[in-house]
Design a binder for these strands. Sequence first.
DNA 1: GCAGAATATGAGCGACCGCTCGTATCCGCT
DNA 2: AGCGGATACGAGCGGTCGCTCATATTCTGC
Lengths: 208, 208
Amino acid sequence: MARQLLTNPRKHAAQARSRATVDVLIETTARILVREGFDRASTNRIAEQAGVSIGSLYQYFPGKDALVAAVIDRHREELGNVTRSALAKASNQPIKQAIRTLVAAAVEAHRIDPRLHRVLAEQIPRTGRLEKVETFSRENYTLFKAYLERHSDELRALDLDLASFVCVTSIEALTHSAVLHNPAMLADNAAVKALIEEATRLIVGYLH
Amino acid sequence: MARQLLTNPRKHAAQARSRATVDVLIETTARILVREGFDRASTNRIAEQAGVSIGSLYQYFPGKDALVAAVIDRHREELGNVTRSALAKASNQPIKQAIRTLVAAAVEAHRIDPRLHRVLAEQIPRTGRLEKVETFSRENYTLFKAYLERHSDELRALDLDLASFVCVTSIEALTHSAVLHNPAMLADNAAVKALIEEATRLIVGYLH
DNA sequence: GCAGAATATGAGCGACCGCTCGTATCCGCT
DNA sequence: AGCGGATACGAGCGGTCGCTCATATTCTGC
């Protein structure tokens, strides 16, 4: 039997109680992903822990993938807010300061819910096989490129596409790897500062 | 019932035919991982497609995880060969040339079996039983740090641990992302050259 | 208050999972 | 040749999976 591939909600929740059901399902899915991992996040288990019947779950989500997709969307929204506001702030700053702002924002974004972020980043590509996860950083890429365009007079001659790829990929990898694979980093403010400093130096040096 | 946690072979294969059985199981596992993904790689399916009975599979592997671990080890061995020889070659080169050698090697390593590499990197659950997969880049990190130590007189004052982390993580992310998320890159030699050039510039600029 | 729409329920089906174990076959050694 | 260990086999057990559907409950509009 073909597995369910759809990730769209099956039905729109209209009344307040059904919206509550949807919410608790998404929240429970996130909690199970964090606490038990992707494999143990079965629809039966999610429904049970959410205090919702399996039938109700399937009224709103066509399957596990849709639940996970909803969790991803919610998380990405939060990340996007942090990044977008940082980019707005950076747009008026000179290069070096702007890069520092962006790197700091990247670290900040990874602090929102690191354990969930880790599960999503590491276990989720199995869902959908789509570019859904690639879009994780696509927006960052586009916005960063726009920044470079506006400030191209302060930079050496650059292939903006290639440069955006290099910068965004590096910043993403450094913050992701540092924050997620070394949880102690979260507490150690000095270490965070050092990381931001190094990443800034890396990027600024590259752009000049 | 508690899931199987071991990833070590259950029994050592002594005769030639059993070694052949083990080989075909590992190879089939790799093939299924690439063609069907981690989730569909069940022990039953692996045994069937390998032309080996499920009983024989369990003579040599305590479960799916052990098979996957064997695939990972084999792949990592191949990557390690490329990287180690590049590092040996680089150890006598000046910084800029050395970095270029290493970046080129990183790209080369990602060309070995990109689809398998992608599956291993993206689909293997790293939380839990297969956690030791994190050592994927640990060796690179150590070797790179050793290189920096030997050439520290050519560099600015550096925290070698931090610098190694920054360099290895960036190179890994750039080559990985470029080669795996843009398969056209494999064919386009000019694009590969451009990537190597940019990554080299990024790292060299950072180290100086 | 009541009809009908929206929402919630959960037993249970068929498929597949990981894995065992009793049995059959093959191979190396004397 | 023939014995004993190594190897191979596969039916099938107990379990979880994703998911449906007949039924029950709650809400909304009139």
